[in-house]
Design a protein around this nucleic acid. Sequence first.
DNA 1: GCTAATCTTGACTCTTTCGTACAGATAGAT
DNA 2: ATCTATCTGTACGAAAGAGTCAAGATTAGC
Lengths: 158, 158
Amino acid sequence: MKLSSQEEYGLRCLLQVARLDQGSPVPISDVAQREGLSTDYVAKLMRVLRQHELVVSVRGPQGGYKLARPAEDITVHDAVVALDGPLYDGGFCEAHSGKQVSCVHSTRCSLRGLWRWVGSALEQALAGITLADLMRGESFVDSALPPLPASALAEVTP
Amino acid sequence: MKLSSQEEYGLRCLLQVARLDQGSPVPISDVAQREGLSTDYVAKLMRVLRQHELVVSVRGPQGGYKLARPAEDITVHDAVVALDGPLYDGGFCEAHSGKQVSCVHSTRCSLRGLWRWVGSALEQALAGITLADLMRGESFVDSALPPLPASALAEVTP
DNA sequence: GCTAATCTTGACTCTTTCGTACAGATAGAT
DNA sequence: ATCTATCTGTACGAAAGAGTCAAGATTAGC
């Protein structure tokens, strides 16, 4: 339940491409310098983003990366899924059933419902934030996000 | 942004202790059998839970584990923090600043605000669900949780 | 064509996480 | 006292994640 490094850095790099993209492609070296990361590492991250079609690459001199779609059309959820897979796998119960053949909790798996709910809530939230939103700076995020999106829960589970 | 195995299994084991605890301590072997895990692995997980004072142990024959507090007073957030640390570290920006001495994003770190918001929303949500809630079975979780706690976001970021 | 800037790829090392193994400590039952 | 059921701690290897490295492929500009 933590951010992976790949998510954090990958999203930062994607954001740098979004910021720096003024028509001409953004080279890896620029992104690396601005983030204080090695060019090799940024290259690896950009590859993941490219393979998930969030950016496109241009090879050769004056080459680099560009967003595959407008910043308004790329959500944080898109990036997180590209960099670390879906939030809630769905196959978790099956994959993590221990030594039993099928999920030991098939009958009363209260956790499955919980994680599914957490996952979809998170997905909804992150799918509502685009790169364009993030480019407006930290103050936007602070002020625009509802303070307690899950507070409704308090009414339900006293 | 995924559940660690330790979180998933640790929470399951904790839940088993909560379910089976009828006055006498629950031995590791019982939990292991019900979860289809090795006793050694369950022992390791229970140790983590004990060190974070979510359960207490009783040694010797007829020994085992008991909840340290009533199931109503142990939240999913308590368990997640015990098993995997706090959701949003706060020191992430500092720890993951790449090769620079200080966070490259100190001025316009839009991500920091985002993760802080995600972390606290998640924390609020998970702190509202107790072991007692989970013991009521999957149907409770499905019906009791608000369908889209973060849907308010749609109004803010069109 | 040649060169240089740039992306592409696979392999490699280091660290962390996962899960197992085993020897030791405690305490109830006899 | 001894036995046995139970927890405790440390150590270990395998797997996954993090980050680096080096050789190769592409293309703009000359």
